[in-house]
């Protein structure tokens, strides 16, 4: 199950990493495009271009991992869906496992 969840982001090609960053940004609450970009810059030091950001947002929306919220303004907030939260957790756990293994091997090398 976790493997399939992780594949939801893994099959996004060049949008996989931006998608992971976007979902991590949305993990603590809804944000619109500009706020997502700023947040990612702050916590990851990565600047997402507008084309990449909306390419990833559209793909995440189609997969039901995020959803737009009702908004009267031009800017549209997005939030993580329950499925999106599960996929993000699976993906981050897999990364954590890789990181822990790599660090442990470096320490014993």
């Amino acid at each position: 199950m976790a493997k399939n969840d992780a594949d939801d982001v893994g099959d996004l090609g060049r949008f996989s990493d931006p998608s992971l960053l976007i979902m991590s940004s949305l993990a603590d609450g809804p944000r619109h495009g500009y706020a997502i970009t700023k947040d990612i810059e702050e916590f990851a030091g990565v600047s997402l271009g507008p084309g990449t950001l909306y390419g990833a947002l559209a793909r995440l929306e189609v997969r039901g991992l995020i959803e737009p919220l009702a908004s009267a303004e031009r800017r549209q907030p997005y939030r993580l869906t329950a499925r999106g939260a599960a996929v993000l957790a699976a993906q981050l756990n897999a990364l954590q496992s890789v990181a822990a293994t790599g660090l442990a091997r470096l320490a014993t090398a």
Binding site: H32, G33, Y34, T37, P50, Y54, A58, R74, R75, Q76
Partner: peptide, 8 residues
Amino acid sequence: YADEVLDL
């Protein structure tokens, strides 16, 4: 998406 991107 244009409205959102233009806002950004």
